[in-house]
Design a protein around this nucleic acid. Structure first.
Lengths: 208, 208
DNA sequence: GCCGAACCGTAACGTACGGTACGGTGAAAT
DNA sequence: ATTTCACCGTACCGTACGTTACGGTTCGGC
């Protein structure tokens, strides 16, 4: 079931990756109004090739999303020497990475596309984005949370619930505002500050 | 500037409202694949009438969104006898209403539409939805937060920041998951519980 | 009862775009 | 040198849908 959701490079040639990059490019500044002709033009390839490689428009979009989603991969957190300080740092760093990805043009474009297609779609791009975004993040952070609990640093019943709260504290209204087209200035410094605040708040709520 | 963003009934007749209701109906179960023909059919009116009343497809969508958005209007919180208990109750109730709206079919459909159109749109549906959703909520709750601060129940610098945190604690990953098509069961009981948790957590973070 | 306005239903128009076909080119294989 | 293959560029086809046009019906005003 999940097999088709996260395979990113299903044997893509360099040329094919270049085409997908072009598609991503078009996606970023044309959104769902991406046309096959435009992708072909931008990638300097023929439409025939696009159809040969990706089947149809939906196939191209799916391939683009999967490829990009696989590239992102959630930030890695090392579980070494766990103490209050290192846990706080891990949460901080994780949040910073999460916000950085989420506020990027590419993430916004991909999420817009997936939202637009959600429900009415054979390939279910929404599922793919969800699986490689929100879900992957959870899978990545939860072990850290559980380690923190075992080390007596955190207190919670359900790691999933705890992660959802962490997610809320980090993301807040940023993602929905960006998706809705709000010109939200999000500089690196601000992201860092917000991630730090979120980590502090999470520890205040779940710290033992 | 903001004048066109929140006027909902710009002198709409009953018949016109009925047509918009039909449009909303189509929107909910066809999403962006809504066609003028289908709206006309569902509303038992002619396409000519649609164009006469709303100009073009975009005009119809905009009218629908504005009309619906104006209808929702953020939950009202009375600022009566402010004490720790009543403040907690207000936060709880507000969160419950917010989640109830956000998880509704109509809200999801409207947000999907607005996200899909964001950026590439003269009428900027994203702005309208943002203004009547997230922003309106903030305007509604902030006075309560500030009253709480003046009553010595809350401690924060910036009401906007405090509200954004509250928003994050309440909404968490629910909205993005719904927008991405996740089949997320959200019953009334669960909403109530989550709103209660969010209120508690918010008070834990900002309570004086 | 007659007129015009408003509206319904449907047919027709124009176009953008997904998808296909085809001729042409460069390179590797034989 | 010739074949083959993968690909480019472009012209072409079919269709869905936004938009317009028009004949027919209802209804309020005279």
């Amino acid at each position: 079931m999940a097999t088709t959701l996260d395979i990113g490079d299903r044997d893509l040639t360099e040329r094919q990756k270049a085409v997908l990059t072009a598609a991503l490019d078009v996606l970023v500044d044309a959104g769902d109004r991406l046309t096959m002709t435009e992708v072909a033009r931008r990638a300097s390839c023929s439409k025939e090739t696009l159809y040969k490689w990706f089947g149809d428009r939906d196939g191209l979009l799916t391939a683009t999303v999967q490829w990009q989603a696989a590239k992102v991969r959630a930030p890695i957190v090392d579980r070494q020497k766990l103490n209050r300080e290192s846990l706080s740092q891990s949460l901080h760093a994780f949040g910073r990475d999460l916000l950085t990805v989420l506020t990027g043009d590419i993430s916004v474009a991909l999420n817009r596309l997936a939202v637009a297609h959600a429900g009415a779609d054979k390939r279910d791009l929404g599922r793919v984005v969800l699986e490689n975004g929100r879900i992957a993040m959870g899978r990545r952070l939860k072990p850290v949370l559980e380690a923190g609990r075992e080390a007596g640093l955190l207190r919670f019943e359900d790691a999933e619930q705890a992660f959802r709260t962490y997610f809320g504290l980090v993301v807040r209204d940023v993602q929905i505002r960006l998706l809705l087209g709000d010109r939200l200035k999000v500089g690196g410094a601000e992201i860092d500050r917000e991630a730090a605040t979120a980590a502090d708040q999470f520890l205040a709520l779940y710290g033992a």
